[in-house]
Design a protein around this nucleic acid. Structure first.
Length: 635
RNA sequence: GCUGCCGUAGCUCAGUGGUAGAGCACUCCCUUGGUAAGGGAGAGGUCGGUGGUUCAAUCCCACCCGGCAGCACCA
């Protein structure tokens, strides 16, 4: 008896295959079927069902089906590589979110020409429509076989598979691969909607101490249409790339003179200051107190916090004329703790929320740098909340509310939460960790936010929540964080006097909303594709005069708007209005006010919005009043 | 940091073992034009850096610096 996803049941006289079940339901499904889900687990279409079970047919359009498709694309690629370059060893080749990759071991590196050849051979293999069959081998046989054909990585890996686990091997044509599956019934079912993208290095088993393999990436989709759509999306992402827009819109630059640090240009810095002012306002309202700590702090402090031990390699060290060794601060928390413990604190002062736009420097590995998203010098919208254990939940809930509200103001409604627990390399006893993890989990539950578990990814001093927002292209970015720290205040000897007259170490919440200003602005640039909402646009309004006769009036309009706090400038240049409209539209100025002889005579402006060709004639006073309202920041 | 690829004008890119070119941008002149490029002229480069091979190197080789993609890393 077989139960289908809609709850209906079908009886079969004896054992059947997944293909039989699909055929029994209908010929259309039989044709579309590529695999089955047997009691919730994906299996080959050819797998035998010999007991009462819940069965669902998987088609290529379903998420599970797409994953199988991509996994198969990896196998077809491996087969193609083995045919073209038999000396190559295969290792792992899984599906990814947009396609697949396979890691190969080969002395020579693959060139772009090689990729084209491999892709061509893959298309052949699909045309050959080779049957893909599953076999179960015993360990000795498998190790001997893979050793015999020179596949040392595969042979090594077999030794690590738990002995009670079935060892399955898939055969397609002459290619035999160790794999748990499931797979398509034949290579022809893959279709031709795939494309090889790039080749890059990747460590065997993800460990930098191991050999580096060559990872060939590809993308694969159920149909050509979806492949084309994906490729278009990649182009769109490139058009929005913050490094490109940063240059085109003259926001910032990066240079060899300060690798990994941002040179903010006037327009970029205007965005920065606008965001900073907005955040400052929101934090003031939420009961934070802003502070500013020193950039250079003595080595002994970093030894006390544990950073010297854990992160010295990534800290910039500055030596002074005396014997002291100073480190450029990689984070702001020790400074805030020092401010906290500078005098005797009472429980009445808690929760004490110290905020700082903290300039930090971390000597990130060169390969990690990426535009202004991952830099060596950056500014965190950091704050530390010193509180009692009773206050943790309430503070966490308030923080989550504030964070979501701020994200909404920047146009991000989709926020995911990850809960990261104790990492392997950590500070402090498990007693602390048990307490901290329990408290933080209780807090996120109380805040009513759904979250996913991220085991082992916490900070070395405490567990953390990470807030991931999704941008206009559906990409995820981790920005906000909330970390619970039972250790640092105690390590640095920060205490407060409790109601009982005794001294207690406060609990410290580390938190950031934007994460880093640099990174967040990078995300915003890409999210808005450079087309910022009026309140954020560095140049909000251009007054383009049509003739020299109207230039004086244009300047007057610009002065009036600036007097009202708007970022307006007059363009009295010697160009036609069409040229000016094009120039400022490309510069993504949200509002262009055209003024000619008519407007000057009647004290009007002709309003043109970015993204529209419509023109609206307004009295100057009305236009100013309207723009003031539109340009006012949220919150 | 590792693997691979790349580095020519502000930008996008041609090009060659015999000391360099286009378009856009820039400057000036003409043009005063009504909503995405009006016309003309000019200026601009130690061909990423340092060594080497060569009669001769932007081109070939080595090292270094920087960038890109991925991996690893992200307190």
């Amino acid at each position: 008896m077989i139960t289908l996803p809609d709850g209906s049941r079908r009886g079969f006289p004896g054992p059947v295959t997944g293909a039989d079940v699909a055929a029994a339901i209908g010929p259309g499904l039989a044709k579309a079927a590529i695999a089955i889900k047997l009691d919730g687990r994906p299996r080959d279409l050819a797998s035998l069902i010999d007991h009462d079970a819940a069965v669902a047919i998987i088609t290529r359009e379903m998420p599970e089906g797409l994953q199988i498709l991509r996994h198969d694309a990896a196998h077809v690629m491996a087969e193609a590589v083995k045919e073209l370059y038999p000396e190559t060893q295969v290792t792992f080749g899984p599906a990814t979110e947009t396609g697949f990759y396979y890691d190969f071991a080969r002395a020579e590196s693959f060139t772009p020409d090689d990729l084209a050849k491999i892709e061509e051979r893959m298309r052949d293999i699909v045309k050959r429509d080779e049957a893909i069959t599953r076999e179960v081998w015993d360990r000795g046989q498998a190790v001997a076989f893979f050793q015999g054909i020179g596949e040392r990585y595969k042979a090594e890996y077999i030794g690590e598979i738990p002995p009670d686990e079935e060892l399955s091997v898939y055969r397609q044509g002459d290619f035999v691969d160790l794999c748990t599956g499931p797979h398509l019934p034949s290579t022809g079912r893959l279709g031709q909607a795939f494309k090889l993208m790039t080749v890059a290095g990747a460590y065997w088993r993800g460990d930098p101490r191991n050999a580096q393999l060559q990872r060939v990436y590809g993308t694969a989709w159920p149909s050509q249409k979806e492949l084309d759509q994906y490729l278009f999306q990649l182009e769109e992402a490139e058009r929005r790339d913050h490094r490109r827009l940063g240059r085109e819109l003259d926001l910032f630059h990066l240079g060899e003179e300060a690798v990994g640090s941002v040179f903010w240009h006037p327009k970029g810095w205007t965005i920065y200051r606008t965001i900073e002012a907005y955040m400052r306002r929101r934090l003031d309202q939420a009961g934070y107190q802003e502070v500013k700590g020193p950039l250079l702090l003595d080595r002994s402090l970093w030894e006390a916090t544990g950073h010297w031990e854990n992160f010295r390699e990534n800290m910039f060290i500055a030596e002074s004329r005396d014997e002291r060794v100073l480190a450029v601060k990689p984070m702001n928390c020790p400074g805030h703790v020092l401010i906290f413990k500078n005098r005797l604190r009472s429980y009445r002062e808690l929760p004490l929320r110290l905020a700082e736009f903290g300039s930090c420097h971390r000597n990130e590995p060169s390969g990690a740098l990426h535009g202004i998203m991952r830099v060596r010098g950056f500014t965190q919208d950091d704050a530390h909340i010193f509180c009692t254990q009773d206050q943790v939940t309430g503070e966490a809930i308030e923080f989550c509310k504030l964070l979501l509200s701020i994200y909404r103001d920047f146009g991000f409604d989709d926020v995911a939460v990850k809960f990261s627990t104790r990492p392997e390399q950590r500070m402090g006893s498990d007693v602390y960790w048990n307490l901290a993890e329990a408290d933080l989990e209780a807090a996120v539950k109380a805040a009513g936010l759904p979250y996913t578990l991220n085991p082992g990814e916490g900070a070395f001093y405490g567990p953390k929540l990470e807030f991931v927002l999704r941008d206009a292209l559906g990409r995820d970015w981790q920005c906000g964080t909330l970390q619970l720290d039972f250790q640092m205040p105690e390590r640095l000897g920060a205490t407060y006097v409790g109601e009982d007259g005794a001294r207690h170490a406060p609990i410290m919440l580390h938190r950031a909303i934007l994460g880093s200003m640099e990174r967040f602005i990078g995300i915003l640039i890409e999210h808005y594709a450079g087309h910022f909402p009026l309140w954020l646009a560095p140049q909000q309004i251009i007054i383009a005069s049509i003739t020299e006769e109207a230039a004086g009036y244009g300047e007057e309009v610009a002065r009036e708007l600036r007097a009202q706090g708007l970022r307006a400038a007059a363009d009295a240049g010697n160009e036609k209005i069409g040229y000016k409209v094009r120039e400022h539209s490309l510069a993504k100025v949200p509002v262009i006010l055209a003024v000619g002889r008519r407007e000057a005579a009647q004290r009007m402006v002709s309003v043109r919005r970015l993204g529209s060709t419509a023109q609206e004639s307004l009295a100057l006073a009305d236009a100013v009043a309207r723009l003031i309202i539109e340009a006012s920041p949220p919150g």
